[in-house]
Nucleic acid binder design. Sequence first.
DNA 1: GTGTTCACG
DNA 2: ACGTACGTGAACACG
Length: 886
Amino acid sequence: MDKLIVIDGNNIIYRAFFAMPPLTNASGQQTNAVYGFTTMLLRLIEDYKPSHMMVAFDAGKETFRHADYQEYKGKREKTPPELSGQFPLLKELLQGLGVPQFEIAGYEADDIIGTLTRMADEEKRNVIVVSGDKDMLQLASDNVTIAMVRKGVTDIESYGPSEIQDKYGLTPQQIIDLKGLMGDASDNIPGIPGVGEKTALKLLHEYGSVEQVLERSDELKGKMKEKVQTHADSAVLSKKLATIHREVPLEQVWDDMKFDGLHPDTAGPALAKLEFKSLLERLNLSGQDAGTAADPARPEAEVQVRTVTMDDMHELSAVLSDVKVLHVETHGDNPHHAELVGLSLATGDTQYYISPAVLQSEGAEPVREWLADSSIPKNGYDLHRVDLALHAHGILFAGAAFDVHLAAYLLDPTEGNQTLSGLAAKYGMSHLVSDDDVFGKGAKWKLPDEEKLSGHLARKCAAVAQIVPMQEKELNDNGMLPLFHDLEMPLSRILADMEKQGIAVNREELKSLGQEFQQQIEKLAAEIYRIAGEEFNLNSPKQLGEILFVKLELPVIKKTKTGYSTDAEVLEKLAPYHDIVQLILQYRTIAKLQSTYVEGLLKEVSDESGKVHTYYRQTIAATGRLSSQFPNLQNIPIRLEEGRKLRKVFVPSEPGWSILAADYSQIELRVLAHISDDERLKEAFVQDLDIHTKTAMDVFRVSQDEVDGNMRRSAKAVNFGIVYGISDYGLSQNLNITRKEAASFIDQYFEVFQGVRRYMDEIVQQARKDGYVKTLLERRRYLPEINARNFNLRSFAERTAMNTPIQGTAADIIKLAMVHMDAALAERKLKSRMLLQVHDELVFEVPQEELETMKTLVPEVMSRALELSVPLKAEVSFGDNWYEAK
DNA sequence: GTGTTCACG
DNA sequence: ACGTACGTGAACACG
């Protein structure tokens, strides 16, 4: 089946220019837009494997549209010179890559695309149109899909007629009417002034087209009628301007667009000329290989794989000492319960495959000893998971040296595709088939035959072996090797130990709490149904909305995409109107505790150990924090007393022991004081003052005695806001005050804490310049949207730039403390065990005789984890359970 | 699978 | 004018 990808060249290069950080080659020529364009192009080729391709460009300044309307695209800013200089580069590169391009004098790229898609419709050929321009939606049909590019150049959403219907309730043709009514500021198309998307959609749903709206404008009321009638001409003209021309003189072009993969001889040199080294590597075109393997859809690599049976184990034993790379394939999300699928080992050119049965057989003892030997360094993918899965099957694992999963996370913590096949593609290796393709996804997961399986696992092992040196170099270039080898790798073993240890849960206590909750739930529900006058599903926001806003006619405070919002914030505001609301809030609170914490936790308690064994994910959070799953032990209730009681069920696993918890006091603000070098903030921590009270004194210019509860509360919110990357809107929402008032709080704060203001300005500048921000331990986070023109995207990136070094450095610090703590326990031969980490808190179980030691050791180790210009403080407490350790 | 809500730091 | 606080995971409803 033919498949044509048509790219809206001008649109995509424009987007790429603003989405990518500035990037120049050795001669000073800026190349960021070409680079962004090219990465997207390669991605499209890989994802869609097109048989035909074409990039369309605008040609000439005057198009036929200017004959109708001289001001067409009039208000648009001139193309920045940094971008216009990149057009010739892109065109030359496309030629080198072997990707056809069209431009036709007097027409825009839109019109070329419009014509091609019309021809495709007539000839029933498949086309994918790639653009960021919503106008393109008018071209969608059964044969034509529009791939709308959102956010930068990586995020793509596909639209056919049905998706357009779902999103706008319009046919593709009506997209033209939409623009006729609402206009388009960026093309200087006027539309009807005062009519935006919402109004335009309403009108179209009612009347169907611009012509019908005008013809029946007498049916409209008041201002709307006036607007429509005065600007009728404008609407007609706007519709005409928005209509993509589909009759450009083009004929027999199909063969000209044939695409047989990247041109093998010229692609390498063209990329090399632009100094796109990473792309060269990704395509395996660098060095002597240039010109050999150009097609991203090239076949799998050849591997030599020996399947080890019980009888020929001796052969493997002989070469075991040479093995540095292993791959353990597991199945299942929860590594504590994961199934073993197979093991592969790599030595030189030969790969060995061992089935789970063979691995667990008597004869495989040498392999198991090798796996367990901590003095033998091993490289692999997601060794933390491997450790837990093997442990669950009674096999010990130690000696993790280089984990490519963890390395990939450090190199780009926001990259979504962290799979090994994704990494293999990134590092330009021969194609590694994805696990989804080999095994199937979700419920369709199926074990392939042994030949296919052993080949796949062998290739994964070989891929790891190739990726390690490349990542090592990249980590080194980024100054991240210490972070990797001295912090994250050791931590991954410590986390596995904590998870295997688990924390004991008192099931009876938990069940009895559940019974109390159940009674309350039933009582509340009965009362709510009585007041409502009917029974309904209280857990359905949709049904609840019907009751509150239709039946009881309470005012609508906020809407969601799908209907009325009924979140707690809304319900708080509705409470004065009707007694039912307070009951619903109470119901929600208790129902949450019951379903998530009582029932959810009971399901996770292990029958064997009577404990819960969480799984900390080390490669998820963009800031460097951990996350916790199965169950999540980082969000056990504490703020409200009803929920806090749940902490009583977390108990020591041995009689007479205690739970000891230690948490950092104001770690994020202390980190901020250090990195901003703000004298006032540092002073506050040096004197160990109550930071929120101190902030209130400074911001409101009052003495300590004059700070009332409200002032302290406001100051606390401001401090939180500062850490999150403050905006007046966010603060106003949090404090329920006007935006003006919030803005004036912020102004006063920055007046006093001028170093903080300087930091916030500088970190955003730095993010713009480098394209990333980093923590004290050199952890990075890339912010491609920091230069976006879209206000929301850009603002979000700016707040992230402010927040990530703070939250991320705090994460670095507690991770360091964990590594030091683990060493301290081992060195002193203590029996106490580290069980949990909750972002700024560590939880231990401690035998009676070590309690005194631990009460001083833990806070000491935590506060000395990293030396800052302000003291780090950790507060310790203990008791018979987690609730008592407060 | 997506959206809504709510638990934590 | 735009429309948000930063970072997560789990349960439930609904298509």
